[in-house]
Design a protein around this nucleic acid. Sequence first.
DNA 1: CATGAATGAGCATTCATTCAT
DNA 2: TATGAATGAATGCTCATTCAT
Lengths: 236, 236, 236, 236
Amino acid sequence: MARGDKGRRTRAELVAAARAVFAEKGYADTRLSDITARAGCSTGTLYTYFRNREEILAAVIDGTTDRAMLPGPSVESGAGSGFGASARSSASPDAHPDSPEGRIREGNRRYVEAYVQDADLMHLMEQVAHVVPGIQEQRMMRAKRFVDRNTRSIQRLQAAESVDPHLDARLTAQALSSMVSRLCYHIYVDDPDPYYATEEGKARLVDTLTRIWVNTLGLREYAGQKWLTRQSSANH
Amino acid sequence: MARGDKGRRTRAELVAAARAVFAEKGYADTRLSDITARAGCSTGTLYTYFRNREEILAAVIDGTTDRAMLPGPSVESGAGSGFGASARSSASPDAHPDSPEGRIREGNRRYVEAYVQDADLMHLMEQVAHVVPGIQEQRMMRAKRFVDRNTRSIQRLQAAESVDPHLDARLTAQALSSMVSRLCYHIYVDDPDPYYATEEGKARLVDTLTRIWVNTLGLREYAGQKWLTRQSSANH
Amino acid sequence: MARGDKGRRTRAELVAAARAVFAEKGYADTRLSDITARAGCSTGTLYTYFRNREEILAAVIDGTTDRAMLPGPSVESGAGSGFGASARSSASPDAHPDSPEGRIREGNRRYVEAYVQDADLMHLMEQVAHVVPGIQEQRMMRAKRFVDRNTRSIQRLQAAESVDPHLDARLTAQALSSMVSRLCYHIYVDDPDPYYATEEGKARLVDTLTRIWVNTLGLREYAGQKWLTRQSSANH
Amino acid sequence: MARGDKGRRTRAELVAAARAVFAEKGYADTRLSDITARAGCSTGTLYTYFRNREEILAAVIDGTTDRAMLPGPSVESGAGSGFGASARSSASPDAHPDSPEGRIREGNRRYVEAYVQDADLMHLMEQVAHVVPGIQEQRMMRAKRFVDRNTRSIQRLQAAESVDPHLDARLTAQALSSMVSRLCYHIYVDDPDPYYATEEGKARLVDTLTRIWVNTLGLREYAGQKWLTRQSSANH
DNA sequence: CATGAATGAGCATTCATTCAT
DNA sequence: TATGAATGAATGCTCATTCAT
């Protein structure tokens, strides 16, 4: 493994090139020579930094994991806290940021934002998850932590009678997570609609996601209230 | 293309073998010789029926499309009708089968059932969708029809004030579809849990899915009522 | 080998089909299935009549050998006689048919005529001669006989002081034969010019060939005479 | 494409090996592995320099095009001049080198010499011309230029009344070219006779070819003179 | 005699990986 | 560290030939 100064730069160029080529041609259709060609170095150089094709894939994923890969809402409310900490809540965009709804909304907002930034990576992940061993495990681990936390939040709120007690907490947490990631995947990768790349589009998406969480959980304050009206006319 | 009687049998054996090997080793790691070996014929025979690797993949997918591939709830309620036709509704398993909830439940039940049957195929689809041109298009077409129908149902129910009017109908329809397919994928493919292959597990899954749909939409009768208790203790 | 009545017809269809396909796609690019497809029978049938690919090629060639394959001038003047039998001679088209020139002209005329008829076969021969063992030998045998005869004719005429005595008789005979076949090949196969398929074109070709023979040999009567004028203006 | 020093050597070895194997087994029967085996490298190396079988054939042909491929007499007399520039001429080997006859003889001499050098290549060309697209075109182009030049020479000499005016100039030029190449092909490839590889044999061949050209064209000075005697006894 | 599905040896081509420079 | 030519195992695909029906 090269650690000099030029070394670090070359390595970075390789990772960047790999990401770009993976995005362009897909993982399976990418030749290592495509990567070195774009990185402007020779084939041999790649092996100075990576032992094989999978290792450079791992580097591409790791290099951006920190930013992206937010597995869903409630991420930001501090370890173990979930979204159920505080009391006040409503489906309106101006809900108190510390209410369960506020936290859900904030989590969704961050997730969507990250997804837009790294849509190409998400596409790559999708291709690679079922093919390269290890990736999927790592990914599921991360997702599991958040589902676990949300499961506990739901259970706590169910105990507090703020959430529909009939819901299977874990299944629901998993379902809501799946929904968020899959809908983003659909909108930003599968069948991209430029509207959802705009601020308005993203806001609408976050709002819909949040509303689905809130409605699903039946967060008390919200469930009982009259339907609110929103400024932008419905149904884009 | 062989059309005799033996021909039909050989072709079927090849498709079956292909499906099995794809499931076992993954699409990318499957050698055509793996398929012919399992089918008990020589490599050349494969080319009597298929021009190349993609064509046999297509045959595998087509061969099961009819059974599986139900893209989600409300499929069965007749062309254009969606799930919103009748009035009475509740989240309980014994909801009138013709109520919106009944239809959603029935759709979910069928989808889950089909998914369990063809989980290996769904896995295959997931691998292949992003790699093989054409597959993804066909798949999205089919999904789009159901999202469209559900979008209209939601809009109709919103007009009748039976559904939360703040929801973006299309986005919600898409989100709920995504949730169903993705959750099934997670449960039956990604991180399989034998419990959900049992009748009880499937029932619980269907129930949770249905409840999420109903809660999300805020179907009136349900939203207002007191939470019901279920026999099986919560949260598996 | 099938010898029934239907058998003979099937065999004939196969040979005809083979000739057509060889002409269309070239020998190397012809699949046996191309032949059976065009003949309207199944692949197996071909093996009822021919043991392999070379055998059907042989059949195609044999089937037309009688007509075509005239190896050049002087063919018709009776066994062993060559073109030198009679006395009077001139390069004009109306030379006495029994003069050396008349015989040369007649030989060329027949050769060209046959070539036009079977240009596709000649093309086939050219492809195949260097590739399939046996064909070339058979072909050379036939050619050799005519070169031999012409060699003797030239020698006889040289003895009679009617022909340039400096010429190497055999080499000249070979050269003139080569010229005729190669020029026809060029004109009818390599770089076909429709003009030479017309009666006028063929006449001009035969005339040029004949004149080259006569001039080369320096057949006395011709060599001494003043240049003749021809009706059709020169140099197409 | 490798451009280093070793690279150039490897490439050259491959081309040499290809030429040798093509000559030995024929183009169609040559396996790429035959070539790499003889070149002493692995199969993959061939693809470092050539994209496929045709490209290495092209390299074999190009690599020797400069030496060989002289399409016939009169090549060397400067652009556009042909063989008809000067006046004095005779069929004797000691004709003034600048006379038409001298030029024809010199052209034939060079052609024969080159043919002997590269007989294996000429054989290869013959096999390949009718099979590989592009080769034939390139070959005809080159040949056409010489036929064109000779056509003009003939026409000029006809205008000067030095050449038989009845001859179709282009057809004659084509015929004489064809004769030269085909006779060489016969003598050196088809039915090789060691005699013609000797100096005496080559001289006799050149002499015969030249004499046929001169007689055919009826170059005045020659046509009128008495037949000359040559030292070597006639008719090998 | 005809059929056409089955065969399988044979070959071109790819591309991750190595290593001498 | 960088280079890039060399490697060669691996695999998709072809098509002449066979033979049971």
